[in-house]
Design a binder for these strands. Structure first.
Lengths: 259, 259
DNA sequence: GTGGACTAGTGGTCTGATATTTAGACTCTA
DNA sequence: TAGAGTCTAAATATCAGACCACTAGTCCAC
């Protein structure tokens, strides 16, 4: 709570205090991680570049191989490099992709103490908020693909193959209509942990399939006619139902957990 | 692009294909990471619990200490454990905090191939979108603290101490008024990479300080009077100006890069 | 009481070795 | 000559055992 800038107005400006993350940690390996991360961030190392071998790095930096290895583990865990074994193997700087970042983000979220309701609400805000942009920027190709998607999903629904994943794919595709990678990535990552928390909910509400896909269809048509208000309205009720379902499942779980 | 479900409608549903992340990597250390991560996820290890010492773990799992250490590095890097040295030190499962996750998330974003404009637009959508929730749920305490914050910032401005960090703190505090950890976390993480890309922009437009803090003040009053429309309007223009500034800086940079 | 030395436990690092994997060169045969 | 098989070198993965630095307690002398 006492983390806000305002709580200590008179002292020297602590303003950007959280820019400097705990530097302590006089760990060699950490210093190496920072150094290499800096090289990547400043683009002196570019995606696809190979790092020297562990032995080589160790010699150059004056540390043992073990230390280098620990640094490599950290860099690998944060998705900055990939490591292959064998001849011509070694660490290469990864080509960052939004989907990769999205999954990393989803990992973080799924391990977080957030409740499903909270994530759902955030998702609602965001997915409804982007609709003006979606309507404005959706190309004919975008709309064609969305229509195609809806048709496929409705067919799948009749075969009993419609699932949360398809619904998620639809929402991500809608986000892609903004042609903004950041937005697409965020929506994408929302649907990772949500899938997990909704898997059971689907069983409890199988009707959602029909209503859901119909709403998807109506939504696409609203976008096609550039009707922002209608598109927003549809999406709002669509997501609202999801939110209620999540809340219900969550409540049930908590009741069970208590007993 | 060919990653959407619809592109391969007839084959067996690859739908949830990205739920199973590349399992390969027959690395001992990776197996250990998975095991411990599983223990944490299934709550057999709870925040605050201490893991056995490295030597101990090594014995129990039949691997050497180096291997354990690499696993620890990975777990530490993904924010699951914290490691202290010295007597009674060791690895403890971290109490996950949204701010910690937020910074991790910000790290991810800042290393991503997203442009500042994209992130800014996403931020705009989100921060404007939450306003109805903010207005609805802001408590008297919330509003009092926001007012206090604005006063402090205006004082700082007069002393020439007002910076991006303070502005960021304000926006995060506004998000906190939703009393939704997911939303607060997202906004918080938005302001990490944005700070970096805006540092220069501030120099170019020093006037922003006065207008910015005045808008902050007006915004708080709009929330206090539960005037959603006005609050949205203020925030929209406030963020719109930021967006334009980011775009301008970005354009300048690209022009420089070309020469 | 209180400050300071002592101690045991823990992570951090080093050394030097073996095992395993893999790309590429090389060889042998049909 | 083409293709299959083999060999080799380079790289990571892992091990075992050692030593250092740090830290929370404990205990003792003043």
């Amino acid at each position: 709570m006492s983390e806000h800038v305002t709580t200590a107005p008179k002292v020297a400006p602590r303003a950007n205090s959280d820019l400097y993350r705990a530097v302590s940690s006089n760990r060699m390996s950490e210093a190496i991680v920072d150094q290499i991360r800096g090289l990547i961030r400043s683009e002196q190392l570019r995606p696809g570049d190979r790092l020297p071998s562990e032995r080589d790095l160790g010699e150059r930096m004056g540390v043992s191989r073990v230390t280098i290895r620990e640094a490599m583990r950290v860099l690998e865990a944060s998705g900055l490099i990939e490591i292959k074994v064998g001849a011509r193997g070694g660490a290469v700087v990864t080509t960052p992709s939004s989907t990769k970042i999205g999954t990393g983000l989803a990992d973080l979220i799924s391990l977080s103490p957030l409740t499903a309701s909270e994530v759902t609400e955030a998702r609602q805000v965001f997915e409804v908020g982007i609709i003006p942009i979606v309507v404005e920027r959706a190309t004919d190709d975008d709309i064609a693909e969305l229509r195609n998607m809806v048709a496929t999903h409705q067919a799948a629904l009749r075969n009993g193959e419609y699932g949360m994943a398809m619904s998620a794919a639809f929402h991500v595709r809608v986000a892609a209509c903004t042609h903004n990678a950041a937005i697409e990535m965020l929506v994408h990552s929302f649907h990772g942990p949500l899938l997990m928390s909704l898997r059971e909910a689907q069983v409890a509400a199988p009707l959602m399939g029909h209503r859901g896909t119909n709403e998807h269809r109506d939504f696409v048509e609203a976008v096609a006619t550039r009707d922002v208000a209608r598109a927003e309205e549809i999406m709002r009720t669509h997501l609202g139902r999801t939110a209620r379902r999540v809340a219900r499942v969550q409540a049930t779980r908590e009741r069970e957990a208590k007993s």
